[in-house]
Design a protein around this nucleic acid. Structure first.
Lengths: 213, 213
DNA sequence: AAATAAATTAGGACATTGTCCTAATTTAGC
DNA sequence: GCTAAATTAGGACAATGTCCTAATTTATTT
């Protein structure tokens, strides 16, 4: 593993643990028995380092989000993997708003992939309708509403979990938000679709957090 | 207006414009023709200042979120006001995750009010069921799912809008997320409830963003 | 193998940040 | 008008990201 790779790899770990803005360049360097100047040689600014990490997550999700999504089970399983990817790079999701709203480079990068993701989501929904798992009434504005729900959940579940469900395990948390996702599809699910949602939820069952106090 | 009040008032403005972490204590002081030492006299740490702003929003929302919520219209109108309150203190919502996950004081404060809000939400839903606007099938785990959807939306709509819908007006943005909110209730709405949702959406209609490109 | 060029590492300097401390100044109370 | 409190000003501190230059290591060429 090259120095640059070690740098990124350890940065992700430390950023995940303590948050991007709470891990200094010197701290990262010291952790790897390096000096600051050495880090800035590979990544002149901290944003450059973050940008590298962003690309890694984007690539990972691009592999996960395929074009085909014939059933609800496929769809939810795919998002399960997306959630795990995001957890692996949770530092990004937890700082995304600040990163994007400040840095034009982040913003441009984000807009491009976001538009693609939204379009992919539409196509997934359409194919679930075609395969008779979702009702044909899911058209027009209703599609956009479902898409909006799903993007909101998949973008902020980690943030909410961080502040509201701190004592949950990762598996519990992911199960909870997958449950929410399935809940968004449910109103449009056909009988066959409902069966799939039920099956998926049964698999979730063991992980779902029990108590609401 | 006392010096302290002027300080808080201007801080909210600057924080809203540029983000809490991007407005320095010296910048705030200079804006009011003061010096840093003078600011720290009233607020020894920046977190103290933020905490004061947090209390203001909490008080404002406490006034808005009443115990009675007999109809869906009432419910959605109430949340419309909540959204406007949040917009008024948007700097907080945009930095909440970092604030809460770092500072134990914020966290404790947040947990207490959050539990109350969630409980209030359950009671609102129950009263809408009682008044026959929502189906009696809305019980148990389903209530918790609806509550989870609503809390997610009302906590992160501003964050998402900041990064995804930057070109929308405030009214458009709020209309969009109120639409999402109503969409969560819709599957459980009775015929009478559906009428209310329709009416509410008609009022929204003019503000709702048109294009999804 | 030696010399030269390139890549990498180290270390210090800079402006900026939040925070703290002390002295100066203003205000209020008697 | 004097004393004490409240307020304001100003400097100092450690820590941050960033930048720049010198030292050192590694690779390439002669």
């Amino acid at each position: 593993m090259s120095t640059k790779e070690k740098l990124v790899s350890r940065a992700v770990e430390l950023f995940n643990e303590n948050g991007i803005e709470y891990v200094g360049m010197r701290e990262l360097a010291a952790d790897l028995n390096m000096r600051v100047g050495n880090v800035t040689y590979y990544f002149p600014t901290k944003d450059d380092l973050v940008m590298e990490i962003i690309s890694q997550l984007r690539d990972l999700n691009s592999k996960t989000i395929g074009p085909d999504c014939s059933s609800i089970i496929d769809f939810l399983s795919m998002y399960k993997q997306v959630f795990h990817n995001q957890y692996q790079y949770r530092c990004l999701l937890l700082s995304f708003v600040h990163l994007v709203s400040r840095h034009p480079l982040f913003a441009g990068n984000y807009f491009a992939t976001e538009a693609k993701r939204r379009e992919a989501l539409r196509s997934h929904l359409a194919s679930m309708v075609k395969n008779n798992y979702l009702s044909t009434s899911l058209i027009g504005d209703k599609v956009e509403l479902v898409v909006s729900h799903i993007t909101l959940i998949s973008r902020f579940w980690l943030s909410e979990a961080r502040i509201s469900y701190v004592n949950w395990t990762t598996e519990q948390t992911i199960a909870h938000y997958l449950n929410l996702l399935s809940d968004i599809l449910l109103p449009y699910a056909t009988d066959e679709g409902k069966k799939q949602v039920d099956n998926f939820r049964k698999e979730l069952g063991g992980d779902l957090p029990k108590t609401w106090k």
